[in-house]
Each structure stands twice: as C-alpha cells, then as structure tokens.
Amino acid sequence: MKQRKIEYADLSHIALDPKNPRLGRSAHQKNLAQDEIFDLMRDWSLEELATSFLESGFWAHEAVLCVEEEIHGDDRLVVIEGNRRIAALKRLKKAYDGDETSRKWLEIIEGIQEPEKLFSEVPFIRLEERGEVDAFLGFRHVTGIKEWAPPEKAQFIAKLIDQNGLSYRDVMRQIGSKTPTVQRNYIAYSILMQMEETEGLDVGKVEDKFSVLFLSLARTDVRNFLGLREKFEVPPEQVRPPISEEFVPRLKEYSRWLFGDEENAPVVTDSRQVDKFSKVLASDEGLDYLRTVRRPSLEKAFVIAGGDQEELYELMTTAAYNVEEALSSIHHYADDEKLIRIVQRLSSNVAQINKIFEI
C-alpha cells in the first residue's frame, strides 16, 4: 500500500462495509442497508471500544481505511478496515442523540459530556480501490492476531484467487500462510459453493461447521471418497467444480454424515472425530453400516471398519514393552503385597488372552 496522509471526516460521511467478510456470505447476497449492517454488528463487543474512545479519544494512529464507493445510489467513504471502530462510534453517537435505548450504552455515557470533535473529525486513510489492502487484510485477519472465522478466511482466499487471478503460491506470499493451507481453504470453499447449488443439501449447517470440512480434506481417505485427489494436483482455475458429477451422490452422503440435515443428526459430532470418520469412509463394511442403519454410530462404524485394530496393536505392544521392562527389577520386590495384587490381576488378564488366542 502506498504511503498516504491521514484525513478527517464527519462520522455521517463514513459508511459500514456491506462486503465486510465478518458479516458472512448470506449478508453479502442481500445488499444490506446501513441500518441493517449496524444491527448485525450490535453484538460485536463494541462497548469496550466506545469506553476507550470516551477516555482517550480516537487517535490518528487508529485511522480506518476507506474507499469511495457508491452505496444505494450515494457516494460514500466505505470502511474496508475498522468497521468495529466505526460501529462503536455510531452507537455512541446514537446514545448522545437520545436514539439509544440500551441501559448498558446509556450507562457508558452517563455523566460524560459529548467529546468535542469525536464524531466530527474521524481519522481515515483514503484508498484508491479495495485491492490495495488485500495483503494487509490477509496478514491481519487470515494469519494474524485478529483472525476471521474459518468460512470468512476461505472466502477471502477465494476472492484473491477468483477475482484477482492469483495462484496458491501468490496468495501464500501475500497473506503469509502455507501454500497447502491456502489450497485446502480454496478447495473447501469451492465445495461449499457447489453444495449451495446441489439439491437437498443444507449449506447453513455446513457453513456453521466449515472448520470440520476444512480439516477433513487433509485426510487422504476423505479425498478419495469424494474423488478429489486430482483437484489437489491442478492449479485453482481447474478446481471448479471440485466434485465431479459421478461423485455428487457421495458428496450428499458425506454432508449428511458430517453435518446432518433436517431428518438426521450428524454422525461426526466433534472435529476430533475426523480421523475415525476418514477410516470409515475407506472401508466397504463401514460404509455399508452408515448407509443401512437408521441412526448409525461413528464408534460402531469405526469398529466395523477395523479402525480399532491399529489402536489394539499399539495397546498390546506398549503393554508387552512395559512388562519386559518391569522384569528387569521385579524380583527385588517379590514380597511386596501391592505388587503381588497387580501381578495377580495381570496374570488373570494374560490367561484370558491366552484363551482367546488358544495359546
């Protein structure tokens, strides 16, 4: 971004951004009016900002970034970065104007005279166009300390690729994220877009758990189940649609099991279960169970898929090594009563194992 001077404008001349990623895709599609955007932002923890403004003012180093755009027929200074600050100011102004009914906000201004120039001289930096700060927004909200929610990050990455024509590597350099992470975000967002156009899928449920979709795509078995392997080997312009027509029925199954629908609860209820889910998808027996049982259980599907076998190997191997290590010194404590009880329990368990394996 070029070095630009700080300017000042009356708060009434500054508009909240209807394209703010934090508002979400559904809000973007509605072309919301300013009052509607303001209402969506009421729960964005604005009080702490307002209190700071009353105590210390709006310092020039906090200048918001704006671009001149037409909104609903009027040319406005639209905030590209700093929407929370402007929303807090606007709510403070409403409180001083007598248009605020919230007791909390009325308490914030109680006994404090309206600060001179707080609303009439708001510091801002004028941009020529939105793309001028893409790299800054990426570092700040995708990989930085003020992170957006997972679907908002993915949407921003998709914008850089689809609208700006950047490659995965270009985006990596611009926002400071790893290339595989950028790629997975883009493919996950592309799947979300395809789901939106696929009959019978509840995209709202998917968007609410977008991080689970993103995490699942790191598993090879999930990629294979959805026929996605090739999409991770081609440039972004060849990704869409990510799911080929022959795999759309599987996409519907994947969505139902992972996110649920109006009639079915999700089989996967926690992001930590993604590994087990991926193993089930790689098993014909596990898939048959998910497809035929009315209310399938992930744990049972995992066992049917043989997923607990690796866990069993690890448990038994660890137990064997521990016993071997104990043998080096156990003879020194042959009269220890507590140790005798432990050995008796171990012997009983070993006898059961021997019976199972007919040893």
Rank of each mutant, 00 (worst) to 15 (best):
G82R: 03
Y189G: 01
K209L: 09
L213M: 14
Q163C: 11
E107S: 07
F214A: 03
G82S: 06
L92V: 02
N164A: 14
I112L: 11
I191T: 14
H141F: 09
D202P: 00
E100S: 13
L213Q: 03
P180L: 14
K209C: 08
A218Q: 12
V171P: 00
V182A: 04
V171C: 01
L213K: 05
E100G: 11
L213Y: 06
N83I: 12
D221R: 14
K209G: 04
T143E: 06
G176K: 07
L89G: 07
T143M: 02
F119L: 07
P115M: 05
L217K: 08
M172T: 15
E196Q: 14
P151G: 14
A87H: 01
F124N: 06
Q155A: 15
P180D: 13
L217S: 05
N224C: 04
N164I: 04
R223A: 12
T143R: 06
Y189M: 12
I191L: 15
R223G: 06
Q163V: 14
S190V: 10
S102R: 06
L213D: 07
I157T: 03
G144V: 03
E132S: 11
M193P: 00
F156A: 10
K205E: 11
D97F: 01
P123H: 08
V142N: 12
K117R: 12
M193L: 15
G111M: 03
F225Y: 15
K90S: 02
